[in-house]
Design a protein around this nucleic acid. Structure first.
Lengths: 192, 192
DNA sequence: CGATAATGTAAGTGAGCACTTACGCTGAGT
DNA sequence: ACTCAGCGTAAGTGCTCACTTACATTATCG
């Protein structure tokens, strides 16, 4: 048996670059040639790692979400000041959009009639809301308990708040200061 | 002088069809051939009405926003029950996304590094927030007055709420019932 | 009528792009 | 040292798409 495959390692190595390209440019604007160049390999190498461009995009979606979740997980580790939800708000107000999380959603949404992309996108968005929901309920148990349904609604509204803040950033509609303020003030109102 | 140009009339006639295509499919997925077919004309006719595909898209953005605004204007006409903001919430909870308003934003956002498209998009989004803001302040003057800055923040948060509801609809993440509930409940919380 | 510009039809054109093929090199197992 | 799969390079291939060109027809004015 000659040589063992390094495909998995290579995939892990290139995925951040691929995800970066999609988050930056969107699906259609990213060409496979562009991907190959950014990765420093030829196109057919990408095609040995993934079946087609769509698979690369879906892998990127998952990668981006895993990454944000990992970062969040650190935030809610052992050392805690204030409730988790409060820290999430504070963190997001500072770093929103940095990892292309929302950007890749918009890219996907305009391809939303492709069933595979839809599925990947929906899974990611639902996971996002679920994560926020956990923080909301944790926060409320500690402070002001409320209905379960209401917590879920609040979580969705918070996701929406994050989304609009990202859009205003993307389009240059609000200053950094105002964005932070918006997320903090309205976030608190929704949280309680 | 032979024959007077009908170009303006033709533009007005075709714009709804063009906008519909973009709202449905996004920018990249719409081909000029597709546009021509939907409009029942040849491609070069479209090119006599607009300089290029980008101009068609920008015209569509403006058209879609004008349309929603017109519909809203009717809502806030002479006959009034409850505050305008309350009616806006109720209306949006039922008809959200129907006119492709949000869909076209997502399409544009993934093309957001084209400066012309950015500008058109930013103008539209800012107008949207301004409109919501007017409703919020009108509502608050009548009920519970609050700071100006806070009203602006609340307006942005409401825009975000609308956006997340559209996304959940687009991705099939919430049932109709829940979406209406989300918009109504959280909308009210942000409004006051 | 006859000149002229608007309107329409039909057939390109050339560039970009997703994806493929052909082939040479490398290095672990026997 | 020979084999054979993994890995890499280079050059296509065929298709789609934004945009154009050439030319026929029509309507309005003097």
């Amino acid at each position: 048996m000659p040589r063992v495959s390094q495909a998995d390692a290579k995939r892990r190595e290139l995925l951040p670059v691929v995800a970066g390209a999609f988050a930056e440019l969107g699906y259609r604007r990213v060409t496979t040639a562009e991907l190959a160049e950014r990765c420093g390999v030829r196109e057919n190498i990408l095609y040995r790692l993934w079946a087609d461009k769509k698979s690369m995009f879906i892998a990127a979606i998952e990668y981006v979400y895993d990454l944000s979740e990992k970062i969040w997980a650190e935030l809610f580790g052992p050392k805690a000041t204030g409730s988790s939800a409060e820290r999430l708000l504070e963190y997001e107000s500072k770093h929103l959009g940095e990892f292309g999380h929302s950007r890749i959603i918009f890219a996907g949404l305009s391809e939303a009639d492709d069933p595979d992309i839809r599925k990947a996108l929906a899974r990611m968005y639902a996971r996002y809301q679920k994560f926020v929901l956990e923080q909301v309920t944790a926060h409320r148990d500690a402070h002001t308990p409320a209905g379960k349904a209401d917590a879920a609604m609040a979580a969705w509204a918070l996701v929406g708040l994050g989304t609009v803040v990202t859009i205003t950033k993307e389009l240059g509609l609000l200053k950094e200061r105002d964005r932070v303020h918006l997320l903090a003030e309205m976030g608190r109102r929704l949280l309680d």
